[in-house]
Simulated scan of single mutants.
Amino acid sequence: MSRAQSTERADVVLSKLQLLITRKLDGLLQGDYLGLLPGPGSEPGESREYRPGDDVRRMDWPVTARTTVPHVRQTVADRELETWLAVDLSASLDYGTADCLKKDLVIAASAALAHLTVRGGNRIGAVVGTGDGVTRLPARPGRKEADGLLRQLARTEIRPGRADLGTLIDKLNSSPRRRGMAVVISDFMTPTGWERPLRKLAVRHEVLAIEVVDPTELELPDAGVLTLVDPETGASHEVQTGDARLRARYAAAAAEQRATIAREIRRAGAAQLRLRTDSDWLLDIVRFVAAQRHARTRGTTR
């Protein structure tokens, strides 16, 4: 497929994707302005009694001392939100055995985030990591600018090699000029090194980690001998998937790996959303947003 054909296909797919997202997500943001995540905001608001699960860093000590009952200080959500995406488009994302490629899921998640956050003067920007390095797309306000950013993401060619996820996240630590929301979209199939930058990012910003997964990365199918190729190095390896013990060891190792990823994301203080290539990703996003907002009404943020 030529570059022009690839670009045309990306535009068609993106148009259909945006139409789908608009139809299904409209209505989620009715009422007072609310961010995608129930973040702390930056403007002080009223105090209320402490509830289990509240962030102790928001304790209102003067009110607590006067009333002898623990209180936390609420904050008002920012009216203009700056959202930055760290988009991992390494070679490992050019893979999928179910309804779509992981790259398609990355673009879909980016489009949904743009729809949920770009309104009322909000700005959205991105840093994109590929095997060639990192590209920065400046944050700009407006639906038209967001659409342009999504087209650039959809047209990005995946090349051999892996983007350094830690370096990619670190780019977000220097890009935003004000407090806002940072979203890391990756399969997190990388050696350690991204945990510290993620923790640093969460100190100042509201952080969401979107983990993109294919079912074969969790369990091997019973399909006889398979030749597996590492998309980043080109190395190949034959695997006898008919061996039940091998499949069990693979599933156990994959579960441990994903548990480690979830633990590190949680330790960083970020929210986590897992999207799979074999599930309804849009429904998963809707459920995530609903759960976060329900948690906010109960006084919790995670």
Rank of each mutant, 00 (worst) to 15 (best):
R9T: 13
R9F: 05
R9W: 05
A10I: 04
A10W: 06
V13I: 10
L17N: 02
L17W: 05
T22S: 11
R23Q: 08
R23W: 06
L29E: 15
L29C: 11
G31M: 06
Y33Q: 13
L34C: 10
S42M: 14
E43A: 15
G45D: 09
P52T: 14
G53W: 12
R58F: 03
D60V: 05
V63T: 11
T64N: 12
A65D: 13
R66E: 06
V69Y: 04
P70Y: 07
V72D: 00
T75W: 05
A77W: 10
R79I: 00
L81R: 01
T83Y: 00
W84L: 05
S90C: 09
T97R: 04
K102D: 07
L105P: 00
I107F: 00
S110F: 02
S110R: 02
A111T: 13
A114H: 01
T117Q: 10
V118R: 00
G121H: 07
R123F: 06
I124P: 00
A126S: 11
A126E: 07
V127M: 06
V128W: 00
T135K: 06
L137G: 00
L137M: 11
P138S: 03
P141H: 04
G142I: 03
K144W: 03
E145W: 06
D147C: 02
G148R: 12
G148T: 09
L149I: 01
A154S: 09
A154D: 02
R155T: 08
G161E: 03
A163T: 10
L165Q: 04
D170W: 00
L172K: 07
S175H: 11
R177P: 00
R178N: 15
R179D: 11
I185L: 15
S186F: 02
F188N: 08
T190E: 15
G193M: 08
P197C: 08
R199A: 13
K200W: 01
L201V: 11
L201P: 05
L201W: 03
V203T: 15
V207H: 04
I210R: 07
D214L: 02
L220M: 12
G224M: 11
T227S: 08
T227G: 08
L228C: 05
L228N: 04
V229P: 10
T241F: 13
L246Y: 15
Y250D: 10
A254G: 07
A254Y: 00
A255I: 06
A255L: 13
A259M: 08
T260Y: 02
I261V: 13
I265A: 10
R266F: 02
G269W: 01
S279C: 09
L283N: 15
V286L: 14
F288W: 14
F288D: 11
V289A: 04
A291S: 14
A291N: 14
A295S: 15
G299Q: 08
T300S: 14
T301S: 14
